[in-house]
Simulated assay, not measured.
Amino acid sequence: MSTVTGTWKRHRTGRTRATPWTWPLRDRLALTAGLAAPFLVALALVPFRTSLSHTNAALVLVVVVVAVASLGSRTAGVVAALSAAAWFDFFLTRPYETFVINASADIETAVLLLIVGLIVSQLAARARRLEIMTVTDAAHLARIHRTADLVQSANSADTVVDHVRGELTELLGLRACRFEYGTLLGRPPRLEKDGTVTVGRRIWNPDTDGWPEGEIELRAYGNGHYLGRFMLAPGPGAVPALQARLVAVTLADQTGAALDTSGPVGG
């Protein structure tokens, strides 16, 4: 990730890409904590530095690194590990309040603190991502189940279409979403079954290229027949992960099933 700047970086597609200023609040707070928390803890240990072993002091700082990485991103964990090693050197090893270490044992401890801090920060960040992924998977599954239940119980396809429009807007972070029934007009970018996007004859990878400009169509089919399409207007945030885009395709397929059963959407 890039260093903190006060500017937006513009992608070659013309859409803006997020810098650390635009990260989620939790990640920004974790990055700040990664810089400040090791400093404050090392400073708090100064009165005890003659009686506290360097190993124990290093372990305390490792706990701080783990806490930061667990709450924030991988980047925050790395920053915390570097900060912990620097302030351990500055406050807790002789000569004090310099970034110089005389004793070889202290050098080893500082290096081990950095290495262990980096390793555990990555493990903690990975554990957090796995937890988020599990929660996200459950949310995706709930969307699919809600829509499937509605397809079975709704009296008209309009109800399903309106429901899926709302689900797609939330799922993909859309600025707007509308549904068109009938003949295909124009050749807008299209969200495909595999979660990629085609622009004309070219394959467009949203994960690396961002969303293409303009509305993106997501087609709904029933029994292999085209029945309508959702027109997606992407919002200003990051492109949703592949998993979310595949869920969107599933929701469109469920809409197609409802249209095939109940008939076209009214007006």
Score class of each variant (00 low, 15 high):
Ala148Asp: 10
Ala148Asn: 06
Asp149His: 13
Asp149Ile: 12
Asp149Glu: 12
Leu150Glu: 06
Val151Phe: 05
Ser153Met: 05
Ser153Ile: 08
Ser153Ala: 12
Ala154Gly: 06
Asn155Cys: 03
Ser156Trp: 02
Asp158Thr: 05
Asp158Arg: 14
Asp158Ile: 08
Val160Phe: 02
Val160Arg: 02
Val161Cys: 04
Val161Leu: 03
Asp162Pro: 00
Asp162Thr: 14
Asp162Gly: 12
His163Gln: 15
His163Phe: 10
Val164Glu: 00
Gly166Cys: 03
Gly166Asn: 12
Glu167Met: 13
Glu167His: 12
Glu167Pro: 13
Leu168Ile: 02
Leu168Tyr: 03
Thr169Pro: 01
Thr169Asn: 10
Glu170Ala: 09
Glu170Pro: 00
Leu172Thr: 03
Gly173Thr: 12
Gly173Lys: 00
Leu174Gly: 04
Arg175Leu: 06
Arg175Gly: 03
Arg175Gln: 14
Arg175Asp: 14
Ala176Lys: 06
Ala176Pro: 11
Ala176Ile: 01
Ala176Met: 04
Cys177Trp: 04
Cys177Thr: 14
Arg178Gly: 02
Phe179Gln: 00
Phe179His: 09
Glu180Ile: 06
Tyr181Pro: 01
Tyr181Ile: 00
Gly182Phe: 00
Gly182Gln: 03
Gly182Lys: 12
Thr183Gln: 14
Thr183Ala: 07
Leu185Arg: 13
Leu185Phe: 02
Gly186Gln: 06
Arg187Gln: 15
Pro188His: 05
Pro189Ala: 03
Pro189Ile: 02
Arg190Asp: 13
Arg190Ala: 15
Arg190Thr: 15
Arg190Lys: 11
Leu191Ser: 07
Leu191Val: 03
Glu192Pro: 09
Glu192Asn: 11
Asp194Val: 01
Val197Ala: 07
Val197Arg: 01
Val197Ser: 08
Val197Tyr: 08
Val199Asp: 07
Gly200Thr: 05
Arg201Val: 01
Arg202Thr: 15
Arg202Ser: 14
Arg202Met: 08
Ile203Gly: 10
Ile203Met: 09
Ile203Glu: 12
Trp204Tyr: 04
Trp204Thr: 06
Asn205Gln: 15
Pro206Ser: 14
Pro206Gln: 15
Thr208Cys: 12
Asp209Gly: 07
Pro212Ser: 08
Pro212Trp: 03
Glu213Met: 11
Glu213Arg: 13
Glu213Tyr: 08
Gly214Pro: 01
Glu215Asn: 11
Glu215Cys: 06
Glu215Met: 14
Ile216Gln: 08
Ile216Val: 12
Glu217Cys: 10
Glu217Ala: 14
Glu217Lys: 10
Leu218Tyr: 04
Leu218Ala: 01
Leu218Trp: 00
Ala220Glu: 04
Ala220Cys: 15
Tyr221Leu: 07
Gly222Phe: 02
Asn223Met: 09
Asn223Lys: 14
Asn223Leu: 09
Gly224Trp: 09
Gly224Glu: 05
His225Asn: 08
Leu227Thr: 03
Leu227Tyr: 03
Leu227Cys: 06
Gly228Arg: 11
Gly228Trp: 05
Phe230Gln: 12
Met231Pro: 02
Met231Asn: 10
Met231Ile: 11
Met231Leu: 15
Met231His: 13
Leu232Tyr: 07
Leu232Val: 01
Ala233Lys: 07
Pro234Ser: 04
Pro234Asn: 09
Pro234Leu: 08
Gly235Val: 10
Gly235Asp: 03
Gly235Leu: 00
Gly235Tyr: 07
Pro236Ser: 06
Pro236Tyr: 04
Gly237Thr: 06
Ala238Pro: 11
Val239Asp: 00
Pro240Asn: 06
Pro240Ala: 08
Pro240Ser: 11
Ala241Asn: 07
Ala241Leu: 14
Leu242Ile: 15
Leu242Met: 14
Leu242Ser: 05
Leu242Phe: 08
